[in-house]
């Protein structure tokens, strides 16, 4: 038996998660946390005690929730795109553009004001989603209609957003960072959105006809085409969904602080790429992606708290952990199933 955790039987999990791999991931993470908690309780003064104190503190939990939202949401979006056969590595760009546009729109409306009864922060949210969806639509047209290389087009999406967002911020606000709105969206909203999106995505992928078509489009598009379902439409839907979900994630990230930070890699700081890692780690399963996203965000939040307590942990090193983990997982476990036709263009025979 290669993976002893896969053997453990847990009734509710068994029903929800078909993949042994994702199941063992969930069980393993829960087990590690329990172990850490036990150590922390037993030796309160030690490093483990400090660590346990951080991991189980509410402030770490709330900052984890805030950091996890963009990772999980973009990751869910990435699943839809890639399952349909279009690898969207532009998730980072979608997060950046929606983060900026959401703050910009909210500031245009003005905190305290409303448009048609919709408060400014909600307007910001919607505008962020619209911007990200628009950019993903551009990506979809270039990839599906004009058959551009998906990796190159995805990189272009990232680079466009990385240049455009700070530039517009400079134009509108006179600096790459926008001023703070003075209001923000609480972590409870982010958490709720993440949970709803995860459950909804799971349902859409596993229970609906659309989910089956999505999978067929990514595995054997010809099979789908010959039964009379348009492969292009399914792929457009997959990519646009990745835009919508990333838009929610990017807006949630920026509005949870009330500001867009455009210096360096911008406030998104590679969360779009971590999102790709998260869904690969979660083996294209929304629940696995949620688990991986929370894990990575938790690591980041813990690292920040450890710094505050005076432990000299190099933050850049901690940020490489997700990437190292995914390489380890891909190499050792090798259970991730990349869709057969992902990255390939499809043309009907007429």
């Amino acid at each position: 038996m290669r993976n002893p955790l896969a053997a453990a039987s847990i009734p509710i999990l068994d029903d929800l998660i078909e993949s042994d791999y994702v199941r063992s991931l969930v069980v393993g993470t829960a087990g590690l946390l329990a172990l850490l908690g036990a150590f922390g309780l037993a030796f309160p003064g030690s490093v483990a005690g400090d660590l346990a104190g951080i991991v189980f503190s509410t402030s770490t939990a709330t900052s984890t929730a805030r950091l996890a939202a963009p990772i999980v949401l973009a990751g869910l979006g990435g699943i839809f795109a890639e399952k349909s056969g279009v690898i969207n590595i532009g998730l980072e760009g979608l997060l950046i553009i929606s983060a900026f546009v959401s703050v910009y729109a909210a500031s245009v409306v003005g905190i305290g004001n409303a448009v048609l009864g919709v408060p400014a922060l909600a307007v910001g949210f919607l505008a962020g989603i619209a911007a990200s969806t628009l950019l993903s639509a551009l990506f979809a047209v270039v990839c599906i209609e004009f058959k551009a290389d998906q990796i190159i087009a995805g990189l272009a999406v990232w680079l466009i957003a990385l240049g455009l967002a700070p530039f517009m911020s400079t134009v509108f606000f006179g600096g790459v960072n926008t001023p703070n709105l003075g209001a923000n969206v609480g972590w409870r909203y982010s958490t709720a959105m993440v949970i709803v999106a995860t459950v909804g995505s799971w349902w859409l992928l596993n229970q609906t006809g659309f989910g089956k078509h999505l999978r067929a489009a990514g595995e054997n598009p010809k099979a789908l085409d010959t039964v009379g379902v348009s492969v292009s439409k399914v792929r457009y839907a997959g990519v646009l969904l990745s835009g919508v979900l990333s838009g929610v994630g990017g807006s949630a990230l920026a509005l949870s602080i009330g500001q867009f930070v455009g210096s360096g890699e911008t406030m998104v700081q590679g969360k779009g790429f971590i999102a790709i890692v998260a869904y690969l780690f979660g083996n294209y399963n929304p629940l696995g992606t949620l688990g991986a996203g929370v894990l990575f965000a938790g690591l980041d939040a813990t690292q920040i708290r450890l710094q505050q307590l005076g432990y000299a942990i190099p933050d850049t090193l901690v940020q490489t952990i997700p990437y190292v983990m995914v390489i380890v997982v891909l190499a050792l476990v090798g259970r991730t199933q990349i869709p057969e036709a992902a990255g390939e263009h499809y043309e009907t025979e007429e």
Partner: peptide, 27 residues
Amino acid sequence: FMLVDPMTVWENVVLGNEPTTWGGLRV
């Protein structure tokens, strides 16, 4: 053959013409 390898026999047979319940929300 125009079949989707990782899917089951019944999923392949009904692909594109899935019977649904709950107003189309569930296969």
